[in-house]
Write a protein that binds this DNA or RNA. Structure first.
Length: 200
DNA sequence: GGAACGATTGAT
DNA sequence: TCAATCGTTCCT
């Protein structure tokens, strides 16, 4: 049965949340219809990590990250793209999970309309691509993900998907870090991952 | 006020 | 492999 993941889910260790989110569903009720995608790739951003937007303390952009868990942190990057995160852990520490890829499930017509790509495999296989396909922008920043137009549904919500897929751990993408950390997680072999994968 | 840069993407 | 593109952050 369809159930929304409760806020308490997100106020656990960020790495655990990032893994547990794999296989759950991103749902967005819009004027364009209902959009649904299965989460297949995430990354964790922890406190003390220089690549974390929250590393240098609260700013206008990252302030949502220092609030309670379960809310959306959306930022604009490279002058072109929006990236969607969910705030995790205890309030005040500034941790989050980035949604890097989803598998399109419902509302593909709308997603195709929102994106200019030929292959369905390319609709939502990147953090900027999935927000574009779903029509998620800055207005979602600070919105709760545990009961609103934008929400996360449990793995049990759509039983036709395999719930026993192997989770691969790998280094994160697009960062300049001296020592790459194993903080990216994805479902092994899924066709909708963001790029060629190298984890184990 | 100015400059450097980025949790990306799409084209070459 | 590389340019596009602009808001955020940090320095002066």
């Amino acid at each position: 049965m369809v159930e929304v993941i409760p806020q308490s889910f997100y106020s656990r260790h960020t790495k655990i949340v990032a893994k547990d989110l794999l296989g759950s569903f991103l749902s967005f009720h819009t004027s364009q219809g209902n959009l649904l995608g299965r989460i297949v790739e995430t990354e964790a951003y922890l406190s003390g990590d220089p690549t974390n937007h929250a590393f240098r303390g609260p700013t206008k952009r990252n302030s949502i990250m220092f609030g309670p868990a379960g809310f959306a942190y959306v930022y604009f990057i490279y002058g072109s793209h929006f990236c969607l995160n969910v705030v995790t852990g205890d309030a005040g520490i500034g941790e989050a999970v980035l949604f890097r890829a989803v598998e399109p499930v419902e509302g593909l017509d709308t997603m195709r309309k929102n994106r200019t790509t030929i292959r369905d495999e390319d609709l939502t296989n990147g953090p900027g691509k999935l927000t574009k396909a779903f029509g998620i922008d800055q207005t979602a920043n600070g919105e709760k993900l545990f009961g609103g137009p934008l929400r996360i549904l449990s793995k049990d919500s759509f039983p036709r998907f395999d719930k026993n897929e192997r989770i691969i751990t790998a280094s994160r993408i697009g960062l300049r870090e001296e020592e790459p950390l194993p903080l990216r997680f994805y479902l092994e072999g899924n066709p909708f991952l963001s790029r060629k994968q190298n984890g184990s």
